[in-house]
Design a protein around this nucleic acid. Structure first.
Lengths: 135, 135
DNA sequence: CTTGACCTTCCAGCTACTGGAAGAACCATA
DNA sequence: TATGGTTCTTCCAGTAGCTGGAAGGTCAAG
């Protein structure tokens, strides 16, 4: 299989596959006589693993750790769970941050006419930005 | 005022102030005879505006637009509101994405022993990642 | 033999900074 | 005046995870 086929079957763009190889997520692919990378079924599988982990928000570095754990038959599931737990904690922090932004923005938007007039509580808030009065 | 003072009063690091100048968020600062940047009160204010807008998640480019609108006495508040609305939409999309990740991860974690045994539904999911059966 | 699709490498750009190096300038003290 | 410590200057590189594009090699079809 050439990189184009693997890309199609795994859903990971060829450019990204080369990038992952460069980053060490994939072992350096064998090369055909013409220099083209050659892949097998396992590579498609590995790329799907990577894509799935990435879609859950794991960093490339963490995916690398997950791949190591996956390959290790003597792994402790506690290690995997711990990685996931930390990731969820980070996700929660982001959600909280985004919700705070969202809440402030919608509050300001409710007070903004949103018409042709120039007076705008949103800009006024940005300009004054004094204190955050609770509710 | 030198950059250090402005940094302290605005809460924006000196490095970041230079970066903002470079990016066009701030006009090129006047220079003293020794080449040091010289600032006034208005610059502190402008930096606070920027910092506040950034803390609400607006991109640097959007902050630039907001500064333009702020400076324009003939602005339409509708333009500001529209910018905010689009931003909230983007935030909502991110929240939804993060919540989906979170939900999948916690579901997998609940099924994982998290002990010394090697069998781990988290890794199995990443490896199989077949379909997402509803609930 | 040429065209077109695919492959290769390498460099640049995206976002929003941040760290660090090298060098000038300022300030205070001994 | 020497010296040391802090602050300033510019410029380059690195962070995360790709993505786009240039320049060029390979291969199958017509």
């Amino acid at each position: 299989m050439k990189i184009g086929q693997v890309a199609e079957r795994s859903g990971v763009p060829a450019k990204t596959i080369r990038y992952y190889e460069d980053q060490g997520l994939l072992p350096a692919a064998d090369r055909a006589g013409n220099g083209y990378r050659v892949y097998g079924k396992d590579d498609v599988h590995r790329l799907q693993f990577i894509a799935r982990a990435r879609s859950l928000g794991f960093s490339v570095k963490d995916v690398s750790l997950l791949l190591d754990l996956y390959a290790d038959r003597d792994r402790a599931s506690g290690d995997v769970k711990q990685l996931a737990r930390e990731h969820v904690t980070a996700i929660d922090a982001k959600i909280v941050e985004l919700q705070a932004m969202r809440s402030t923005l919608t509050r300001l938007m409710e007070r903004c006419h949103g018409d042709d007039r120039p007076d705008c509580p949103i800009l006024e808030d940005l300009a004054q930005a004094p204190v955050q009065s609770p509710s």
